[in-house]
């Protein structure tokens, strides 16, 4: 590796890794898109559902990474918005709505409203206080869902007639997978794009030095609130997709450990790196899935990994790849 790094670079070679890097999302997308077609040949049907779940959680993690990594807002209540999205779908189903698009759209709107309200209060606090106040709101939502008898409370709510995807219904058994993939790709692309936009730069500026940004005339509070609301809305979408994925919603979605897990996944993957969310989710969920197969003591290896990541990859696993790219 080092011998490659020390080679004098021919002119123009510097552009190559960049183009390879910019191709990477497309390659990943193509592989993921082809997966349901290839998987049955190897008897891996189960993993279609598994990957679909990964993709949904990635949407939630990407939205958290946006406010955490670029905005510096350490929120410990993100699962609350996932839950709001999921319960919006439940409410729509209960009200007789059969269209997935309508239910998901409503989930985005409602969770955006919740995020705006919660953000408006929480964003006045900083650091650990912000972390705790977002946790408080998520806990309130959790206890509300537990005692909401209409939607099953702690027993959860089963969706017995899957929501309709409109014209896409019946095209292919795995059509829902591709819909999720398309949405995940959109969220990924959108958040990568916003991160390098004027808004994204302003947000990162606030993360690094809030006072200075305020002095420069940026509406700091409003920018943070917009980011927080957007992230909440996207988390709500993830919740709505999760409701359709499981055809079941329960308050356990909103338990504070779920918020903590999202935070941990983003931190493992790499905060403020566009691959951070997806990588963290893939590592965490795959590890949990595999370890459980072999032992009932499957928590401690994850704990150990967490400590190791904090010590040896403090900026997340995504940066390990980044360094490699730079040395080439």
């Amino acid at each position: 590796m080092s011998s490659v790094a020390t080679l004098p670079l021919p002119a123009g070679a510097g552009a190559r890794p960049r183009s390879a890097a910019s191709l990477l999302p497309w390659v990943v997308l193509a592989v993921l898109a082809a997966f349901p077609l290839i998987a049955p040949a190897f008897g891996l049907e189960y993993y279609i559902g598994f990957v679909r779940r990964l993709l949904i959680v990635m949407i939630a993690a990407t939205s958290l990474n946006f406010i955490l990594g670029y905005g510096g807002m350490v929120a410990l209540g993100h699962a609350g918005f996932v839950g709001v999205g999921a319960y919006t779908v439940v409410a729509m189903v209960e009200a007789g709505v059969g269209s997935a698009w309508a239910a998901w759209g409503m989930a985005i709107v409602i969770s955006a409203v919740f995020a705006a309200a919660i953000g408006a209060v929480s964003l006045r606090a900083r650091g650990v206080y912000f972390l705790m106040i977002t946790l408080a709101f998520a806990q309130m939502l959790y206890y509300l869902a537990v005692s909401l008898r209409t939607y099953g409370g702690d027993d959860g709510y089963g969706i017995y007639t899957p929501l309709s995807l409109g014209g896409l219904d019946g095209l292919h058994a795995d059509i829902f997978y591709w819909v999720v993939l398309a949405l995940a790709a959109l969220v990924f692309a959108f958040s990568s794009r916003v991160a390098v936009s004027r808004f994204g730069h302003a947000l990162m500026g606030i993360r690094d030095n809030e006072t200075r940004m305020a002095a420069m005339g940026y509406p700091v509070y409003r920018i943070k609130l917009v980011a927080f609301t957007g992230a909440g809305a996207v988390a709500g979408l993830a919740g709505a997709l999760l409701a359709s994925h499981n055809n079941f919603v329960s308050p356990s979605l909103m338990h504070w450990t779920e918020s903590a897990t999202l935070l941990v996944m983003v931190a493992i993957g790499g905060m403020g790196k566009r691959w951070g969310g997806p990588l963290g989710v893939a590592i965490w969920l795959t590890l949990a899935e595999v370890l459980k197969l072999y032992t009932e003591y499957w928590h401690w290896p994850i704990g150990l990994m967490l400590i190791l990541v904090v010590f040896f990859a403090p900026k997340g696993v995504a940066t390990l790849f980044e360094r490699k790219e730079k040395t080439q």
Binding site: A260, H299, G303, L304, L306, V309
Partner: peptide, 11 residues
């Protein structure tokens, strides 16, 4: 994060 890891191991 690291102390959360300690919790997992301790449990």
């Amino acid at each position: 994060l690291a102390t959360f890891g300690v919790i997992l191991i301790a449990d």
